[in-house]
Amino acid sequence: MNDAPREGRLWWAAFAVTAISACVSLGFAIEALVRLGTDDSSAMYAASRSVALVVAVAAVAVVRSRRALIVVALAMIVVQALDAVVGVTIGDLVKSVGPTFTAVLNLVVLVPVVRSVRAEASA
């Protein structure tokens, strides 16, 4: 299943941004869970989904698959974009700009990986 590109820096850059994004999301979910406790089902749901995304990132690290990285990175881009919408909705500039920056950065580093998969498929 290892289909990592020969130009490993592209893969590792996309992986690093995706992993950092997932870990930061998990950190915020854990913080909410600690602050709000297990009586808050939203915090528990956020934490469970964040753990699942970190596990998915870990699986990508093991299999080193470009296709798997693309799927998980796209999931994190959607998560961060939606987090930015939440930030705008609650009027918090930091919670708007941070996730927007992360989503855009993740997209920028993912595009070369997607292009390499497409180029290989058409060859």
Rank of each mutant, 00 (worst) to 15 (best):
Ser96Asp: 10
Trp12Tyr: 10
Ile20Arg: 00
Asp3Val: 03
Ala123Ser: 13
Ala61Phe: 05
Thr102Asn: 08
Val72Lys: 03
Ala52Thr: 10
Gln80Val: 04
Pro5Lys: 14
Leu74Ile: 11
Val34Gln: 10
Pro99Leu: 07
Gly91Val: 04
Asp92Thr: 02
Phe28Ser: 10
Ala43His: 01
Trp11Arg: 00
Phe15Lys: 00
Gly87Asp: 00
Val94Trp: 12
Glu31Met: 14
Leu107Pro: 07
Pro99Glu: 09
Asp92Asn: 14
Arg118Thr: 08
Leu110Phe: 01
Val57Trp: 03
Asn2Arg: 10
Ala81Cys: 10
Val88Ile: 14
Val55Asn: 07
Ala22Asn: 01
Asn2Ile: 12
Val117Arg: 13
Ala47Phe: 11
Asn2Lys: 14
Val55His: 02
Ala119Glu: 15
Ala73Cys: 13
Pro99His: 07
Leu69Ala: 00
Val109His: 00
Val104Met: 09
Arg118Gly: 08
Val34Lys: 04
Arg9His: 12
Val72Cys: 03
Thr18Ser: 02
Ala52Ser: 11
Val34Thr: 10
Ala59Cys: 15
Ala59Gln: 09
Trp11Ser: 01
Val34Trp: 09
Val63His: 11
Val86Phe: 12
Ala43Asp: 06
Ala58Pro: 06
Val17Arg: 00
Val86Pro: 03
Cys23Gly: 10
Val109Cys: 00
Val54Ala: 02
Arg6Tyr: 14
Val97Pro: 01
